[in-house]
């Protein structure tokens, strides 16, 4: 490992750790205002939706995004598995299997 790499690890680790830990320290010490608590109740659903969208759209900087059709096709059986079983494991396994089938048959 070079000295540059060492500095990058230390610097990136510091900013990442602070982003993770400082909120815990502040929330413990301070009373949050009501509007912030209300805002935060929507963080789980919004961030999970945005992270899902990241897998379903392909960005083309400067132009409109397109749909990642391969992922969208695999998402259908995965979602059905979720509706039927309410199990995260089932969603992941069916999703992976669906994608492997799509690729195997060259769809």
């Amino acid at each position: 490992m070079s000295l540059t790499e060492l500095w990058i690890i230390l610097g990136c680790a510091a900013v990442t750790l602070l982003s993770r830990v400082l909120p815990f320290v502040f929330v413990k010490q301070l009373q949050m205002p009501d509007w912030l608590l209300s805002f935060l109740t929507f963080v789980p659903i919004t961030i999970m939706t945005a992270l899902t969208c990241q897998g379903l759209f392909i960005a083309h900087p400067g132009h409109l995004a397109t749909v990642n059709w391969e992922n969208l096709w695999a998402a259908i059986p995965a979602t059905i598995a979720g509706i039927l079983t309410k199990s995260l494991l089932a969603v992941v396994i069916v999703g992976i299997a669906a994608m492997a089938c799509l690729r195997y048959f060259g769809i």
Partner: peptide
Amino acid sequence: GFDFALTAMFIGLVYLQ
């Protein structure tokens, strides 16, 4: 198909949420 595991996981998590 392992590259789809991450997207599948978020689909599952968002649905359960």
